[in-house]
Amino acid sequence: MKYTYYIFIFFFVSISAQESVAIKFIDSVNLKSDSLIAVDNFNTVFYVNNNILHKKTNTKTITYNNLQLGDLSDVNTFNPLKINLFYKDFNTVVILDNRLAEVFKIDFNALSPYKNVSHIATGYDNTFWIFNQDLQKLELFDYKTKTNRAQTAPVQSEALDIKSNYNFCWLLTKNYLYTYNYFGSLVKKVKNTGYTALAESNENIILKRDSQLFYMPKDKEKVLPIDTSNLLINQFFVVNETLYIYGNNVLNKFQLKIQ
């Protein structure tokens, strides 16, 4: 009886350990950049070189730089008509249109009350999410009225990354991954087991831990490893079910084979 029991346990553990998300290689392209930002459905590539944002299409490349604001900390291209650039050292966000022309600039140092921002992500309408690290909470900030439309309850650990779409914002901290709706209400809370970065597509989440990626479907908390065959992962993001992995100056494109 004991022998049968151990056979069953071994079989169950083996099946569980094999469960993962496969990827199918599509193609790769050489691309030298300091930081790859995104690739959209039209194969437009956004990347940063020497603190300059580049937007590369099949026909031309246009750029934007603002040397007065120091290092470019983050770029969010979720809405290509309102691209958000965050300059953390100067606590400032610049909003660009699709031609990389500056249309709005928000200096959080000049606001009352002052906001000490560590992360940003796109929101709906004239808003973006900011993480106020003095108050340890997310705020949905209207950059035209310079007021908060929503805010979350404070969290108890360091913010590592945030991503958003028009309906939700995902906050990854050292302790948990939080999901909030656009009212600032907590929708889901999942323990962080060592993840340091995330990407979002159609409310499905990709998480990075060390040199491994993991897939968490929307409305579920089950996390499955993605078989990336030990690729170097400097940046990663997902467009629909296409996974982009950038490392060693090569952009690899894969199809996520999700059952």
Rank of each mutant, 00 (worst) to 15 (best):
K82D: 05
K105D: 04
K208T: 03
T193I: 09
I52R: 12
K115L: 12
F183T: 14
I120H: 01
F168C: 03
A159E: 07
A153I: 10
Y5Q: 06
Y176F: 12
N76K: 09
E158G: 08
W129M: 02
N148G: 14
L81E: 11
P113K: 07
E102C: 07
T57R: 12
L81A: 15
L198V: 03
N91K: 00
I26S: 13
F108Y: 13
N240E: 12
H119Y: 10
L243A: 07
F254E: 04
E158S: 15
I83N: 02
K218L: 08
E158M: 08
T228I: 11
L138V: 04
L243S: 06
K105F: 01
K115I: 11
E102W: 04
E203W: 04
N132T: 01
L198K: 03
K208S: 07
Y87N: 02
L177M: 02
N66M: 07
N116G: 12
D227W: 03
K144A: 10
V75K: 06
L69M: 05
A38K: 12
K222W: 04
N126Y: 15
I26A: 14
R99Y: 10
L53N: 05
S164C: 05
Y143L: 01
L69H: 04
L160I: 02
M1L: 11
V223R: 00
K144S: 11
N49A: 15
A150L: 04
L224A: 08
F237N: 01
I9H: 12
L96Q: 00
L69T: 02
F86W: 05
A197H: 13
L224C: 05
N50I: 08
N192G: 12
N49C: 12
N175Q: 08
P80I: 03
N30Y: 10
K222L: 07
